[in-house]
């Protein structure tokens, strides 16, 4: 397995702020990789360093084996970046924008591929429209198209679905998934944890410029989250002591986590025996949100 992105001991300071504090990371070719973390954790700085938009103070970054500083031309050819900000050049139409972007990468006569991207992103009808006239969602799609003009094997999406409607989000993910199936390596940052959970096979979590968790999504879920029985008791009712010991309560909902479904019945039996009346009951699946919260609060894995 080849390494698509390798980040080695990368550190970067902005004045007194330590944006990246010795980050080590490797993304394998063909992976769908998630980069998560709260605002200010260093995700965008890391992506900027990867793309050559920011010079790091120390450490080394390679894209498909090409150093992003020493061999920046080769590295940048391997990389497509969809920036977080909704930026555009108001002087040009969609097609002009994509032709110019192709030219920057030394590609001429790229219309066939441009048409294919436009088609896939549902932009064909807007090809000759000026960028100014497009809606926010359309502009976001053009940003994706711009990142793809040079057919990069590695694609980085920095919060691509922030403020994007449901329909576009679906189209976008369908397309990105297909690119991933075709062999492209995808790196995604997002605040929508359910998106990361369903798309990414491996996830790194950043906090204050450090990698605080790095594992396959399945492993993270297993280690930090579990199924949970969530109960709302009738007013005045109390959990029996045995159940109360293992329950956590938040907003009037008691959660009891479990690993196997046959653990549910004894819990319910205990409640029945205690004469505990329930108003609501649901079974929650392990989710990345719980993982995220636990990791960010510095809690250990294996729910211990």
């Amino acid at each position: 397995m080849t390494t698509a992105i390798s980040v080695h001991q990368v550190a970067k300071r902005f004045g007194s702020v330590e944006a990246l504090a010795g980050v080590d990371l490797a993304v394998a070719e063909g992976e769908f990789f998630g980069l998560l973390g709260p605002n200010g954790a260093g995700k965008t700085t890391l992506i900027s360093a990867l793309a050559g938009l920011v010079r790091v103070d120390s450490g080394r970054i390679e894209v498909m084996g090409c150093d992003v500083v020493a061999d920046y031309r080769a590295a940048r050819r391997q990389l497509g970046v969809v920036p977080q900000e909704l930026v555009f050049d108001p002087f040009f139409s969609v097609r002009e924008t994509l032709r110019i972007q192709s030219g920057y990468f030394g590609i001429r006569g790229n219309d066939e591929w441009i048409d294919e991207i436009l088609e896939n992103l549902d932009l064909s009808s807007k090809a000759d429209a000026n960028m100014r006239t497009l809606s926010g969602g359309m502009k976001r799609r053009v940003l994706v198209a711009q990142a793809l003009v040079h057919r990069p094997p590695v694609i980085v999406l920095d919060e691509p679905t922030a403020g994007v409607d449901v329909e576009l989000r679906q189209t976008l993910w369908q397309f990105i998934r297909r690119l991933n199936r075709d062999g492209h390596t995808i790196v995604l940052t997002t605040h929508y944890l359910e998106e990361a959970e369903s798309l990414c096979s491996r996830i790194a979590m950043l906090k204050a410029g450090r990698v605080v968790a790095l594992d396959s999504t399945a492993n993270l879920l297993r280690r930090f989250s579990s199924h949970a029985l969530r109960l709302r008791l009738a007013p005045g009712a109390l959990l029996p002591p045995a159940a109360a010991l293992r329950a956590t309560e938040k907003d009037g909902i008691c959660s009891l986590s479990f690993d196997r479904f046959d653990e549910i019945e004894p819990i319910l039996a205990e409640l029945r025996v205690a004469g505990c009346t329930l108003e609501e009951l649901e079974i929650g699946k392990p989710d990345l949100e719980e993982v995220f919260i636990r990791v960010m609060h510095g809690l250990q894995g294996d729910r211990g």
Binding site: A51, G52, L53, Y72, R73, A74, R76, R77, L79, V81, P83, E85, V87, F88, D89, P90, I100, Q101, Y104, F105, G106, Q146, H150
Partner: peptide, 17 residues
Amino acid sequence: QSKVTGNIIFVLLPPIS
């Protein structure tokens, strides 16, 4: 203009020396 609107990034990402 490119800096204020942010589209300078389109010139900074490609392999242009």
